[in-house]
Nucleic acid binder design. Structure first.
Lengths: 205, 205
DNA sequence: TAGATTGTTAATCGATTAACAATC
DNA sequence: TAGATTGTTAATCGATTAACAATC
């Protein structure tokens, strides 16, 4: 464990390494090098070695990295060596897609609650989840150990709902609403806005 | 128009400015300052001024920026002062959510084709779109002017389908599959992987 | 005019790369 | 052993910030 502050930009790359290594492991590969991993993820070998070495000496000169060992270490560093309960806020089309998404389970996440403010949706089911009333959200979250929420609601209500999530103890928000959110310093937000992502590419066309 | 190469990191922030400005305009606000815009998007005023000034002098000392004027300029710079045709590859849950997403229209994008390799889905409709056979994808894309694709298919086939997209002339890919894609230098990829985004936050919990 | 805010410069800060001794 | 590859250092490169003259 390293006491120095690790830059956000390095933390941001670790999940990409993790994903690629998981994939290699699934294909039965036992060992890799910074060179090979770099080719997979499009990052220089030097940078990968530098990033990883922030946290310890996980490789061996001459042979590279044991994939299962590095996987274990990265999961531990990122704290996805456990399962996090996640609340899904908004049961629209995007909420439905996330509720049914199979990709969370083996990557450290488990949806445990789904909320919507539409009274007609409350009580209905998505997959195994019963949609709960958004009016009960704060109360339900406070009584749980949910620290992570995914927000799939319209931009107009995103900030006010975010304020409630923060009030209820949520510390990480995956925001699908197309708006920048204001949160305290101890709360993290990641943004997924398909139009914004597309607009980052059109400049180059 | 500036002949110098603009850093990717600046281009990446412009859509965020655009989104915030659009929102201000919708609220009837006419003018803003780098200070105010910065507070909305969580970026320093100095950086916003520096970013914008790469492309021209769009502000006025003393009064700031005209929102509609800056919107026009940013749209022009990002080339979203037009409507781009987009192909959606994969008609699963995520594909459905994107096909029905209302947020593309006024931000420069329009889905014109939906493909799936499941013969049972081919011919069915999502909203107004008839799902087409993935076997016809290259041919259909080549006959179109589609330069942008959204990829919502399993990771296992993402690279091979990407190769086909590139072959068919696609230059920008919004990738929802949880895998890094290899593409030529003249093709851009943006990644949306909810699990990866969540894993960028757990470190801080 | 006086106050406000831009655009830009220079200084600072941080990230990436190249290179190589250490060593498996 | 010989070849390969790490971890790390120093150099380079790039991004951010602070400050302020210009000017609306």
């Amino acid at each position: 464990m390293n006491a120095e502050k690790i830059p956000d930009i390095i933390i941001g790359r670790l999940p990409v390494y993790l994903r690629a290594l998981q994939r290699m492991a699934d294909n039965g590969i036992k060992t890799t090098s910074s060179q090979e991993l770099g080719e997979h993820v499009g990052i220089s070998a030097a940078q990968i070695r530098k990033d990883i070495s922030q946290f310890g000496e996980f490789g061996k000169q001459g042979t590279g990295y044991s994939i299962t060992y590095l996987l274990d270490k990265l999961r531990e560093i990122l704290k996805v060596d456990r399962i996090w309960d996640v609340a899904l806020i908004g049961a629209g089309d995007m909420g439905h897609a996330l509720a049914r998404y199979q990709g969370f389970t083996n990557r450290g996440f488990h949806i445990v609650m789904v909320f919507d403010n539409n009274k007609e949706k409350v009580g209905r089911k998505i997959d195994n989840f019963v949609i709960e009333d958004a009016d009960k959200m704060i109360e339900r979250l406070k009584a749980s150990n949910v620290k992570i929420a995914m927000l799939t609601i319209p931009a107009t209500s995103a900030q006010s709902v975010t304020d409630k999530l923060v009030q209820a103890g949520v510390r990480a928000i995956l925001n699908y609403a197309p708006i920048s959110l204001n949160v305290p310093n101890n709360v993290k937000v990641q943004y997924i806005d398909p139009a914004t992502h597309l607009q980052r590419m059109t400049y180059y066309l």
